[in-house]
Simulated scan of single mutants.
Amino acid sequence: MKLTVEQEEKISQYVFDQGLKIPSLSDDVIDHLCCVIESELGKEKSFDELLQNAIADIAPNGLADLENKTIFLLNSKRILLMKKLMYLIGFIGSVTLTTGITFKLLSYPGANVLFIIGFLTLLLVFMPLYAIDRYKVAISKTISERLKVILGLTAAIITGLSGLFKLMHLQGTQILLLAGAFIFAVGYLPFFFFTMYKKSIA
């Protein structure tokens, strides 16, 4: 049974309301939904029921999740390369930091330089890359998930810099430490426990 113009417009409007950013994906989803509903229309179920069933079948977690998976598949090689680079940087930073600490304990020359390089590599390169990766995962979720990533990264960087300033006897240590602690306690923790609470009752 063929869909009416009104029904086709309703399907198109539903897909449009989901905010998909890939036009070709939107067109494919609309075509798929129309074909599935047409094949079942006229039987026991109503149009609205068929639409909901078709949507649940093609995208159980929503069309936004379907789009994210499509983007991942289209960019999987680049994403995997970035992940490898991110973890390589994390490994290099960790080894450098550990070497610096070891040299410091053994009173070897170059300990401070290695420590600072490793620390800054982890703090200013690896952690932002990791946070961006986590943010991409959370981008289709609630705003609390995204804010948790942003505020957690900000608090970690500021607190880490305060520790580095303390070791190097630079001014501003207390301000950085207080700012980092404030963002962590007032910004990050509420979102962290809020998301934990939502998951516990879901």
Rank of each mutant, 00 (worst) to 15 (best):
residue 166 K to G: 02
residue 162 S to K: 02
residue 144 S to F: 13
residue 150 I to Y: 13
residue 134 R to T: 03
residue 159 T to V: 02
residue 161 L to G: 03
residue 145 E to P: 00
residue 157 I to D: 04
residue 163 G to H: 02
residue 133 D to G: 03
residue 142 T to G: 14
residue 153 L to E: 11
residue 166 K to E: 09
residue 139 I to V: 11
residue 150 I to S: 12
residue 149 V to I: 15
residue 163 G to F: 01
residue 138 A to K: 03
residue 166 K to Q: 11
residue 140 S to R: 12
residue 156 A to I: 07
residue 135 Y to K: 00
residue 163 G to R: 00
residue 136 K to D: 09
residue 136 K to W: 06
residue 138 A to P: 00
residue 151 L to K: 08
residue 134 R to A: 09
residue 160 G to M: 10
residue 145 E to D: 11
residue 137 V to S: 07
residue 156 A to R: 03
residue 159 T to C: 06
residue 158 I to A: 01
residue 137 V to L: 12
residue 162 S to M: 05
residue 163 G to D: 00
residue 165 F to V: 07
residue 148 K to S: 11
residue 158 I to P: 02
residue 135 Y to H: 10
residue 165 F to T: 06
residue 165 F to G: 07
residue 155 A to T: 11
residue 160 G to P: 10
residue 152 G to Q: 07
residue 160 G to K: 08
residue 148 K to I: 06
residue 162 S to R: 06
residue 158 I to H: 01
residue 143 I to N: 08
residue 157 I to V: 15
residue 133 D to N: 10
residue 161 L to C: 07
residue 157 I to R: 04
residue 164 L to A: 03
residue 154 T to Y: 04
residue 146 R to K: 15
residue 145 E to F: 14
residue 135 Y to S: 02
residue 152 G to I: 05
residue 148 K to C: 13
residue 136 K to L: 12
residue 150 I to F: 11
residue 146 R to F: 11
residue 142 T to V: 08
residue 160 G to H: 10
residue 160 G to N: 10
residue 143 I to D: 09
residue 133 D to Q: 10
residue 145 E to L: 08
residue 163 G to S: 04
residue 151 L to G: 02
residue 151 L to Y: 10
residue 151 L to E: 12
residue 152 G to R: 06
residue 138 A to Y: 08
residue 154 T to V: 14
residue 155 A to Y: 13
residue 144 S to Y: 11
residue 166 K to T: 05
residue 144 S to C: 08
residue 158 I to Q: 00
residue 135 Y to L: 14
residue 162 S to N: 05
residue 142 T to P: 03
residue 135 Y to N: 00
residue 158 I to M: 02
residue 150 I to T: 13
residue 155 A to I: 07
residue 158 I to D: 01
residue 134 R to L: 12
residue 137 V to I: 14
residue 141 K to M: 14
residue 162 S to E: 03
residue 131 A to Y: 02
residue 131 A to K: 03
residue 166 K to L: 12
residue 164 L to P: 05
residue 131 A to I: 04
residue 157 I to Q: 05
residue 140 S to F: 07
residue 163 G to L: 01
residue 143 I to P: 00
residue 153 L to T: 04
residue 132 I to Y: 07
residue 153 L to S: 02
residue 153 L to W: 05
residue 141 K to S: 15
residue 138 A to I: 00
residue 159 T to M: 09
residue 162 S to P: 07
residue 140 S to G: 15
residue 159 T to K: 03
residue 165 F to E: 07
residue 134 R to P: 00
residue 149 V to R: 13
residue 145 E to V: 12
residue 159 T to A: 08
residue 135 Y to F: 14
residue 154 T to R: 01
residue 164 L to C: 04
residue 161 L to A: 01
residue 132 I to G: 02
residue 164 L to G: 05
residue 132 I to C: 04
residue 146 R to P: 13
residue 144 S to P: 02
residue 158 I to E: 01
residue 166 K to I: 03
residue 139 I to D: 12
residue 156 A to T: 10
residue 151 L to M: 14
residue 145 E to Q: 09
residue 139 I to N: 10
residue 149 V to N: 15
residue 155 A to W: 11
residue 134 R to M: 08
residue 148 K to M: 15
residue 138 A to E: 06
residue 140 S to I: 15
residue 138 A to G: 00
residue 158 I to S: 02
residue 148 K to T: 09
residue 142 T to I: 09
residue 149 V to K: 13
residue 152 G to C: 09
residue 137 V to M: 08
residue 152 G to A: 09
residue 134 R to F: 08
residue 152 G to M: 06
residue 132 I to T: 04
residue 133 D to H: 13
